[in-house]
Amino acid sequence: MNDETLFGRVSRFIGTLRHCQHLGIQAVSARKNELVVELPYTDAIVGNPETGVIHGGAITTLMDTASGTVVICALPEFELCPTLDLRVDYMRAAEPGHPVYARAIVYRVTNNIIFTRCEAYQADPDQTIAHCVGTFMRIGPEATPKAYRELITGGDAE
């Protein structure tokens, strides 16, 4: 699959996640085993109204979305993969008023499990805001209804 096809799939997938629409989370770029998504800064995700700093929970949602979606960039067929666990380390507070990006990679795929790593950052990718490792369970393409699979893969450029 080329990057354009992957980007179409991940964008359509994120588009079906209602909470991501609510927060404005969007795919930025996709390639094999790697995905970048963006969380725009809004008042709705503020944790501390005194400082305007984003709540850790919104960062967790961003990283869960990136890690759960990057599996699409690693599998030949679209499968929904439920999250088994996530471990998030918060390295520094995000700068208020600016979007946060999350770059997720798949570093190992087995018959049952997908292992991911993800880093959240703002303007400078080397200034990590949060780091996350996750594991996702493979339940097979058949576990996802055909109509939904076609919704995600149907728009693939031939």
Partner: peptide, 16 residues
């Protein structure tokens, strides 16, 4: 909500 099929709450929301 996240997964529209079940439907299920977004895992990030549960975490948050």
């Amino acid at each position: 909500l996240g997964n529209p099929i079940l439907p299920a709450i977004h895992g990030g929301v549960i975490g948050g």
